[in-house]
Amino acid sequence: MSKNKMSQKRKELKKCMKRLDALQNELAKRKTYKRLKCYMEQLKELQNEVDRRQPRQIGYPVSGSLKIPHPVKLHEYTICFGQLDNCGRELLEDALNARCYAYAPYSNFKVGAAFRSKGGKVFTGCNVENVAFTPCCCAERTALVKGISEGCKTFNAGAVVAYHPAGYTTPCGVCRQFIHEFAKMDIPIYIAQAPESSAKVPAFEDDEEVLVTSIYHLLPHCFSKY
């Protein structure tokens, strides 16, 4: 075989080898694409399964419901005792004094409360415990029942004090519903931490922080038959 023919054959072989490499690359790409497509389909199925198991987040704003009342709420904030208005200071001081009479031999957690009636009279109360636990009465209800038993059916402000190292002690759920029963509109509720010391004449420091909340903040969705 001549050198020219040999050279031509080598060139043809090179071309064939290049075509073969190109075909192999194309075949590998197609296999990779098929595998990738298969993986994507599996991933999509898994995502659909996860979506079906997830709780639906679609809903409507509560404010748009005609079945839920949306009363006007008072502002909720914190303020120093010395900057409170006369109503807030008087109620907190009365509640603090009422706390001294708390009967809490089982929990040793003393609470005092004070509520101002629509007529301006202030009624105070403390928590009264019982060994049977069920007959226990919270300070808030004690104060309100005293006023109700004297003919006062509407109250326009209240205060609750107790000592807890973690911070404020707000009314329990039962008391929140009870307060709401005798508040014809949103009323301020002053919450303060009682002094830890057991002084005979307890008092608040002027820089003591007070939470000024309201019954509609404490119980936004109350139970009512009206």
Score class of each variant (00 low, 15 high):
S224D: 10
E90V: 10
A95H: 03
H70S: 11
S149D: 15
I191K: 01
S214E: 08
Q83L: 13
F115A: 03
F155P: 03
N4D: 15
C175N: 03
P61H: 06
K67R: 14
V161C: 06
E150Y: 10
N130S: 14
V174S: 07
V111G: 02
K29P: 01
D94H: 11
N4L: 14
I58R: 13
H75T: 12
Y190E: 06
G120W: 07
D206V: 06
V174P: 00
L96G: 00
C87W: 06
A192F: 00
K73L: 10
A104N: 08
E196H: 09
G112T: 02
K200I: 08
Y39N: 13
N86G: 08
T32P: 00
S65W: 09
L219R: 04
E181K: 07
P188W: 00
H180A: 09
K15F: 11
D206P: 01
L43P: 00
G158D: 04
Y39I: 14
K9Y: 11
A132R: 12
R52K: 12
E208I: 03
K31R: 15
L219D: 05
N4F: 11
V62Q: 11
F155L: 08
P195S: 09
S197G: 07
I189R: 04
V174H: 10
L36K: 15
A199L: 09
Q177P: 02
G120C: 07
A98Y: 02
G112V: 01
T154D: 13
S117T: 03
V212P: 03
G158T: 01
C100V: 14
L43Q: 13
A162I: 01
H75P: 10
S214P: 05
T154F: 01
A203C: 07
A159V: 03
K118M: 10
L91S: 03
C136G: 07
E90W: 07
G167F: 05
T154I: 09
K29L: 14
A183K: 01
L218K: 01
Y168K: 05
D207P: 00
Q42V: 11
S224M: 09
R99F: 00
P220L: 09
E205A: 08
G158L: 06
I148M: 11
C100P: 04
E150M: 11
L36F: 07
T142R: 02
